[in-house]
């Protein structure tokens, strides 16, 4: 079993550390979207009176934020999909203590989190799409 050169090992570790951060990006975008939608709705309903005009702006804002969030999560998901590299070996078990398995495991986990974050963002935005008012 060949050992990596110390520089390569450091670089590989730094890459994994980065992807460890990226694993949280999907849920982070989801939570930021959730907060923006609910804080925005609370402000419009409680402070701006929840009139038709302000609600129209709120729906537009939620629509814009949702598109941005979905695009961000799609990008995170695509990066994670590439890191998982599923189509290379159709491998979804990463239980060996080797760099490749750690690398693919982080991509796999990040991809699944991106999928659930995508669905979560769509569900959070649906009330705005169906014209639900402040009541």
């Amino acid at each position: 079993m060949s050992r990596l050169h110390p520089d390569e090992e450091r670089r590989s570790f730094a890459e994994e550390a980065d992807s460890l951060w990226r694993i949280a990006f999907g849920p982070l975008i989801w939570s930021a979207h959730f907060l923006l939608c609910y804080v925005g709705a609370a402000l419009v309903c409680a402070r701006l009176g929840g009139t038709e005009a302000t609600l129209a702006w709120l729906r537009l804002g939620i629509g814009g934020v949702t598109v941005l969030a979905l695009a961000g999560i799609a990008w995170v998901g695509w990066q994670a999909w590439r890191q998982w590299d599923f189509l290379d070996d159709y491998d979804h078990v990463h239980d060996r203590a080797v760099a490749e398995d750690r690398h693919e495991f982080l991509g796999h986990a990040s991809f699944l989190l991106a999928v659930i974050s995508f669905v979560g963002v769509v569900y959070v935005a649906l009330p705005a799409a169906f014209g639900v008012g402040c009541q």
């Binding site: 669905v119 569900y123 649906l126 009330p127 169906f130 014209g131 639900v132 008012g133």
Partner: peptide, 19 residues
């Protein structure tokens, strides 16, 4: 996911009339 989305959409669509 699709089924829950449809049910959520239906529940939201009847909400304005309920309220």
């Amino acid at each position: 996911t699709v089924l829950l989305g449809i049910l959520l959409g239906y529940a939201l669509s009847i909400m304005p009339e309920q309220r």
